[in-house]
Structure formats: C-alpha cells, structure tokens
Design a protein around this nucleic acid. Structure first.
Length: 429
RNA sequence: GCGGCUAUGGUGAAGUGGUUAUCACGCUAGUCUGUGGCACUGGAGUCAUGGGUUCAAUUCCCAUUAGCCGCCCCA
C-alpha cells in the first residue's frame, strides 16, 4: 500500500515534545488566571461570515487563506470555514452568550488550532496553535496595557528575557482614512522614482511603503507623513495614555509607524512582540491590538475591545532553540521486580503502600530473568528498583537499588517503604 | 500566489551509471541464566513517489509530493 502523509503545513507533536507544550500552556494559564482572565473554548469552525465581516473580505487571511468546508458531501454551499484566528469567534461568543450584561470588562483567553491556507515555512503552518486573550467592554488605555503586559508576563515566566515590543496607533475610522489620503498625496508625484514593490503597495497597502527596505525609497520615507501626527484628538490621547502606562511600568517598546496589522477590524493601538534577535519581526510571536468596532460589526452592542494572539508553535520552537529549562513530567519513579511466586505477597504490599503515597510505581510481575527485568526497569527510566526474590521473601527483606547511582541496600519491608516515601516527599514540591 | 534550494535505514550523515549501498547513534533479537546502562553476535533501507533516458539508475532528465530559504503576509 502507498504510504500516505500528513497534509502540507501540519505536524505531529510527539511525546518527546509534549513537555514543552504543557509548560507553555500551564504557564500561560497560571499567568492569565492570575490576571482574572477566564478560559473559553469556541468551535473550530464557524459561519464563514463571522470571519469575513470581522477580518475584512479584502484581507489576505480571508481572501486567500480561508479554509472553506462543506457540512457534508451532499452539501452544495460551503458556508462554514475553519477559523483562521480566534478573535472573531470569541467576539461572536461574547455576543451570543449575553456577556455584555456581565460586569465589564469581560476578560477571556483561549488556546486552540487555527487554519490558514498558505505556503509553509519554518514557524509558519497551515494548522497552528494559538493562545489568545480578549478584553471586552473597556475602552481605556488600562486594558491596552493589561493586554500587552499579560503577553510579556507569559513570555517572561517561560524564561525569555529579550524581546522587541513594537507599538503603533492606526487611529479610528475617523482619522485613518484621512491619513491614508495624506500619505498617497505625498507619494503621488514620486511614484516614478519609487521601487516596483512600492508602486504596487501604493494601491494595495500604502502603509507598507513606509516599511520598504529598498535604497531608492529611503529618502522619501523620512519626509513622509506619519500616522501619529494625523490621529484625531481622542485617538492621540488614548495612544499617549497607553504609552504612559508602558513607560510607568518599565516596559521597553519601539514606536513603529510602519506597524499595521493584516485584519481590518483593528483600531487605535496595534502591537507586535518578537524575539530579541528578530528585530525585523519576521517571525512575530505575538500580535494584537484594539478592535472597538468588531462586536458591533458582528451584530452585538457597541463594545470596545482589545486582544492578541500568540503563536504557540513559534514560542515552543523558541523554547527549544534557546534551550530554556522545561520542567520534566513525572515518569516512572519506582519499579518493583518480582522473582518467583514466593515474592508475590511482599510485592503486592510494596505496591499498595507506595501507590497510596502517590508515587509512580510500575509493577507488572514478569517471568523473565532478573537480568532482563533490570533491563526493562532501566528503559522505563525509573529511579529505584525494589527487588524481591526467594531469599528476600524468606527473610522479609527487600533490595532497594538506586538505578542512578547503581548502589543498593538490603532493608526490611517497612524501612524500604519509609525510605522511598521520604525520597519523594522531600523532592516533590 | 511568485522565485530558489533540498529529499539516502528511526535520527544525523557519507557514497556510486553496473554484482550483497557505507558510518555513527538509536531501535530490536540473542549470548552472559539473582542484578540494568558494558561487551560480543544477529536484524530492519523497495536510496520520497511516478514517469523517462540507458544494455543498466539510488546516482542523469521531467513531473508530483513534502521540507527549507527569500518575497508576500502573519502567529
């Protein structure tokens, strides 16, 4: 038979990698629970209009990357789509579950897979895991700060110390169009001198022109109008407040007037976080911003909100690359080796008393030689082997062998139990 | 979606237009029969898939698939 392979851009997460993943998840949950975020799970797929309306039909994510699905083979329409991001679904859930009548702000977080049809590369998948938070119902800069701070806090607790935080404000539907017009007016008579990429950007996404690395374009960039100078009063004040919070709490950031996000629902604050050595932000770890109009676009009450998404796969990769300390899960701690039926009774007793103490004991009687049983014990990765054979059964003793140091001693049954108990009560947290 | 590079046992690597395709580690079976990680002896690869060129292809060519890099975009 042909061997089939996994779909492009997906991956298997094997047992060896699970420790890093659960470290990421448990750290994130601890931090977020501590900041009064509540966890929410939403469906993997939604009515595709949820995404279209929120992210914007012309955005790359919707236009080119959306996975459309049919409910079944006979279904004509593909009105469902795999979620390409988590915010729209969370906003839909906020509305549908009447969370607007709960005490505001409502702080939510989620963890799950996202789907985007695009060309895979390192740190870029068609199915990837994302951790995200959303804060609904507060338009103050406090929440912008809380959002950014919570992301950094998670990264710090994971052991990272060096990242880039880029912040910008892209204004609101009032002031943003005015700025874009200014920018295009500025470039209008320079189009012939600008690089081909920028010519293209002029129509599609003029803000990207500010980000051009081409040499010819540099001289125009410095003179170009800046978004921050074009913000309306409310937006400017909100942005200043946000930056003030970051300053006050000693969060280092770069103002980046070229920072724009790929989803249409963003307003005002936008930010991205990348690893310290990734100044260009080729591989963003976390990106987000404010989206004050999304809830009403999806048919809910006018509700300001801010949130972010974090690429779990990228963070986990980085954990491994930086060889940060990842707590190991408890495996087998003690193995009981029974040689001959005479030892059965004692072995049961040992198993029961250690199992009760929540020690991970592996006890499956085997007829194999002591030699091969020792081999298996070694392969199980146990710390201790308790060996009971004919002789021990007769004298009521047990051999306690420390498999790490290869030392062993002959103890009575009760002192053997006590010794093991002590080992694990002292070391286990 | 565009351009480029790559593809050899589980992993990492050699290598060749022609009889049994190397090496390390790992895995596995056994020897040593009351003591593991040592030692020794074995085992496992249709050289990504499908075509083509050739007397002959793992080695050359094409396509497909997948991975990686750049662009685009983003998590």
């Amino acid at each position: 038979m042909d061997q089939l392979q996994k779909p492009r851009g997906t991956k298997d997460i094997l047992p060896a990698e699970q420790a890093a993943w659960s470290f990421f998840r448990s750290t994130a949950e601890r931090v977020l629970n501590g900041l009064s975020f509540g966890k929410i799970n939403t469906p993997l797929f939604e009515d595709k209009r949820i995404f279209e309306r929120g992210a914007g039909e012309s955005s790359d994510i919707i236009e080119k990357q959306l996975y459309l699905i049919k409910a079944n083979k006979n279904e004509e329409n593909d009105e469902l789509a795999l979620r390409p991001e988590g915010t729209a679904g969370a906003a839909r859930a906020y509305i549908e579950n009447g969370m607007s009548s709960q005490p505001q702000p409502v702080r939510l977080y989620y963890f799950g897979t996202m789907y985007r049809y695009e060309r895979p590369q390192a740190g870029r998948y068609r199915e990837h895991n994302q951790l995200g938070v959303e804060i609904f119902g507060d338009d103050s800069a406090e929440s912008d700060y809380l959002a950014i701070m919570s992301a950094l806090e998670i990264l710090k607790k994971l052991g990272f110390s060096d990242f880039n935080v880029a912040v910008n404000s892209i204004g609101c539907p009032e002031c943003r169009p005015k700025y874009l017009k200014k920018l295009k007016d500025y470039y209008a008579d320079k189009l012939s001198k600008v690089c081909p990429d920028c010519k293209r950007r002029y129509d599609i996404n003029p803000l990207r022109m500010l980000d051009c690395k081409n040499e010819e374009c540099q001289k125009f960039k410095t003179q170009a109008p800046q978004m921050v100078d074009s913000l309306c009063t409310e937006c400017r004040e909100h942005f200043q407040d946000t930056l003030q919070y970051l300053d006050d709490f000693g969060i280092k950031f770069d103002l980046d007037n070229t920072l724009v996000r790929g989803l249409d629902y963003y307003t005002r604050t936008v930010f991205e976080i990348s690893a310290g050595n990734d100044k260009e932000r080729h591989s963003t770890l976390c990106g987000g911003g404010r989206y004050d109009n999304l809830v009403s676009i999806l048919g809910g009450p006018k509700t300001p909100a801010v949130g972010w998404g974090m690429g779990a796969d990228r963070v986990v990769d980085l954990l491994k690359d930086n060889s940060l300390k990842i707590p190991k899960p408890r495996g087998v701690e003690v193995v009981i080796l029974e040689i001959g039926d005479a030892a059965k009774k004692v072995c049961r007793q040992l198993f029961n008393s250690l199992d009760k103490e929540d020690i991970n004991v592996f006890y499956i009687p085997s007829k194999l030689s002591l030699r091969s049983q020792m081999k298996s014990a070694s392969k199980l990765g146990a710390d201790f082997a308790l060996i009971v054979g004919q002789q021990e059964a007769l004298t009521g003793s047990v051999i306690v062998r420390d498999l790490r140091s290869s030392t062993q001693e002959d103890l009575s049954i009760s002192s053997a139990i006590d010794m093991i108990k002590e080992k694990y009560s002292a070391t286990s947290e």
